[in-house]
Structures are given as structure tokens and as C-alpha cells.
């Protein structure tokens, strides 16, 4: 539990620094992300029984991303009804699956306001996943709780899931995020053009 407090403290401290200072960290965020992914890679590489793990993933590797797509779109549609936002924007925002750096600029091409909402909503999804994943897995299976993170489970939220869910969910989380990362860049423009 102490790690969770450190995670939340780290996030809040970062937000305060970002809001109230003009400190520049360059591309340290990306470098840290690559370092983490590298460490995770080492962890996977040195673990034995990788082949058995991949076999064990089986249909879950496809079912979980499908659940995330359907669930996110239903959630986005309900949110748009609640907020009285046109459904196509609600669906497009939710089709980002947490990938805020893609969703924001993509939506901003069509509407600056929805671009900002798309960015913030998907950033918030990532932040909520960081805060609530460790709590959620106390009540629901840790494999199914992966869907919370959407596309971010292949990078930014992957270390957190591995930390709290265990090394055994690394591949499942990565494959889940990878599939959604491949879908989002096609699905968002498709929704905006078709609806």
C-alpha cells in the first residue's frame, strides 16, 4: 500500500511542479518511459516459461481488448447523453482508449473544444487507472481490471499493473494495449467521418 501512496504523491507533486513552476525537464518523461519498458523487457526475458505463458493467454488476449472497445464506446455514448454532447463526439472521445496525445490533436482538427475534452478525458482515464487499478484488483480479477487502462496498458500504466498485479499479467496487459493502440488511430477518424 505504501507504494500506492508514493505513486499518488509523485503524481500530485508533479502536477504542482507543472502548474506553479516553469521548470523544464526536456524529454525526461519519454526517457523514463523507455527505461521502464526496458526494465520490464529484462523482467520478461529472464523469466522462464514464456512460451507457456503465451499459450495460457489464449483467447483472453483478444477478448479483453474487444471488451475494452465495446465498453468504452458504450460508456462514451452514455456520457454524451448525460452531458448533452452530440453522440459522435462522445464516441470519438471514448475511442481514444486513454491515448490522450493522439485523441486530443485528432479531435482538435475538427473542433478545438472537443479536442481539449478529448485530451483531458483520456489523460484523466490514465490518471484514474493509476489511482484505482491497485484498489480495483482487490475486488475484481486483476486480468480483467487491465481493461481500465485502455491503450495505455502497453506503456505508461504497464509498470503499475506489473507492480500491483504481478509479472504474470505483463504479456496480457501489453498485448491488450498493443491491440488498442493499433485500433484507435483508425477508429477515431472513422467515427468522425461516418457519424
Amino acid at each position: 500500500m505504501s507504494v500506492l501512496y508514493l505513486v499518488i504523491s509523485s503524481l500530485l507533486l508533479g502536477m504542482l511542479v507543472g502548474k506553479y513552476t516553469s521548470l523544464e525537464f526536456g524529454n525526461l518523461y519519454e526517457l523514463m518511459l523507455y527505461l521502464l519498458i526496458f526494465i520490464i523487457g529484462i523482467d520478461i526475458g529472464k523469466s522462464r516459461g514464456l512460451r507457456e505463458e503465451l499459450k495460457r493467454l489464449g483467447k483472453m488476449a483478444l477478448l479483453l481488448p474487444s471488451a475494452t472497445v465495446v465498453g468504452s464506446l458504450i460508456g462514451g455514448l452514455l456520457a454524451s447523453i448525460l452531458l448533452k454532447v452530440p453522440p459522435k463526439w462522445g464516441l470519438a472521445i471514448s475511442a481514444g482508449f486513454g491515448w490522450y496525445s493522439l485523441t486530443g490533436p485528432l479531435l482538435a482538427n475538427y473542433s478545438p473544444v472537443y479536442g481539449i475534452i478529448g485530451f483531458l478525458a483520456n489523460l484523466t482515464r490514465e490518471i484514474l487507472t493509476i489511482i484505482f487499478y491497485p484498489l480495483a484488483i482487490k475486488r475484481i480479477p486483476k486480468e480483467k481490471a487491465i481493461v481500465m487502462g485502455g491503450a495505455t496498458t502497453m506503456d505508461t500504466t504497464l509498470p503499475l499493473m506489473v507492480k500491483f498485479g504481478g509479472t504474470e499479467i505483463t504479456l496480457l496487459a501489453f498485448v491488450h494495449g498493443f491491440i488498442l493502440t493499433a485500433i484507435a488511430p483508425f477508429l477515431i477518424p472513422l467515427i468522425l467521418q461516418l457519424l
Binding site: 479483453l64 465498453g71 460508456g75 456520457a79 471514448s94 490518471i127 481500465m148
Partner: peptide, 22 residues
């Protein structure tokens, strides 16, 4: 508020479908 609602609903929607359908 809109961002928070969208984020919460997409997370809850995903969780619901995963729990019921997978």
C-alpha cells in the same frame, strides 16, 4: 467535469463488459 465523466464512464463500461462478457 466533462472529462471526468467521460473517463469514468469509459472505464466503468470497459470493466462491466469485461466482467460480464469475458
Amino acid at each position: 467535469i466533462s472529462s471526468l465523466v467521460f473517463a469514468s464512464f469509459t472505464i466503468l463500461g470497459s470493466l462491466l463488459i469485461a466482467l460480464l462478457g469475458v
